[in-house]
Design a protein around this nucleic acid. Structure first.
Lengths: 129, 129, 129, 129
DNA sequence: GTGGTCTAGACCACA
DNA sequence: GTGGTCTAGACCACG
């Protein structure tokens, strides 16, 4: 349960991200029901409103659809969408960061070097956890 | 003047980032005066308080120093500091993005490929402008 | 509540100093919520922006962290940081005062004597309150 | 000519302090004329208004008196007043700093130790200059 | 409810 | 004219 109420990322965002990862990884399969709002809220010790907001976002992304009275279900191509979404988000983030770097007069090579350093740093960080 | 009042990034942050880029790029040189609070506020169609807040942040970063009654000036090693700051920010952004990607089950190779695609895309974008 | 709107020290600075003292003294404990922006603003008869500015400074010092929607909390090592900060500030003030005294041709012994007199005077003042 | 247009102390304050020190040290004697406003302004490369403001403050302190058409003269007991003024300012600064330290739960011994450290530090600083 | 940002406009200190 | 502080009151994001 990687939810951290401290930390800069909003709770609802963390919850949405976490579920999106589970869907992408195939933990929740197509047409399978997700945990109910209240159940998840209790499990995460979080306000139901917050879970609602996370579910809203996932529904807006088309990953998930609601059946009134039954619950939330993973969309047919949910796993695929989730993976695309992650990659798209990554691409956008990289793009913006690179443009900011170029604006600050950093060369493409320099930016690439910083990226490699970060990639190596992330590996170390993951191994230490 | 790349200031977007509707984006998610606070105005004062955008202003600070923009000026930091100008200092890093050597547009404002050491011991040279920056635009006055009010002048920049008028130019950006923004409240003077907002510019002030941006300048405050730059001053805390040591990029710039203010002299009451005189104006704002680029610090001696301002350009150098600005470049370091930019690289550090880039590293942090990359690190977070990479960790998010790993959490979404993307391999290091896959993440690297997305980065290369973004880097190429940024080149194209720059050339078209 | 020792806030003086007419003194030379900015209000936000006074507020930050005061809360830092309370944290240093252990009045607010680690992970405990501080008074909300608006509550403190009302209590001090001050604009919420002013309190916000004080809290900003404390947050930058690492004494305190803010959670949107929840409130402000004392950081884990907040009390320790507050005490260090107080000592550092004291050292800086003494240093400047001593240099000013030396510039005015006062000997080290003379300056020391004045300090001892002030220390005794502070004791008396504290006892009378 | 220890006037530093950068640095946090206002120019007029620096000028007043400097002249007060000269008077305290007996460089300017009783009933002796001080440099004229314009002469000093030129010498310090400073706006005459700024020198005026410094002279105003010294006159308010009673260190100096103006003879219209003749210039500024050191008051009879000027040197004595200057010395007292320095010591009084020092005493007040120490007192305030000590009270702040006590408020932050520092013991008198601890405060004394910090003072001794600052005194030693000031010696080192002076020797290095 | 909480904190975070922003505007409009005021007054002060300094050069 | 410059920067620095403050108020009054608005709107947003979050829980």
């Amino acid at each position: 349960m990687p939810i951290d109420p401290n930390g800069p990322v909003p709770l609802y965002q963390q919850i949405a991200d976490y579920i999106r990862q589970l869907v992408a990884a195939g933990v929740f399969r197509s047409a399978e029901a997700l945990p109910s709002l209240r159940a998840l809220a209790v499990q995460l010790a979080v306000n139901p409103n917050t879970v609602q907001r996370a579910y809203d976002q996932l529904e807006r992304e088309g990953l998930v659809y609601a059946r009134r009275g039954l619950g939330l279900f993973v969309a047919e191509r949910g796993a695929e969408l989730a993976r695309n979404k992650s990659q798209e988000a990554l691409y956008q983030t990289f793009m913006q960061a690179i443009l900011a770097g170029k604006a600050a007069q950093l060369s493409g090579e320099k930016i690439g070097a910083i990226f490699q350093r970060a990639l190596a740093g992330a590996d170390v960080k993951a191994r230490n956890q």
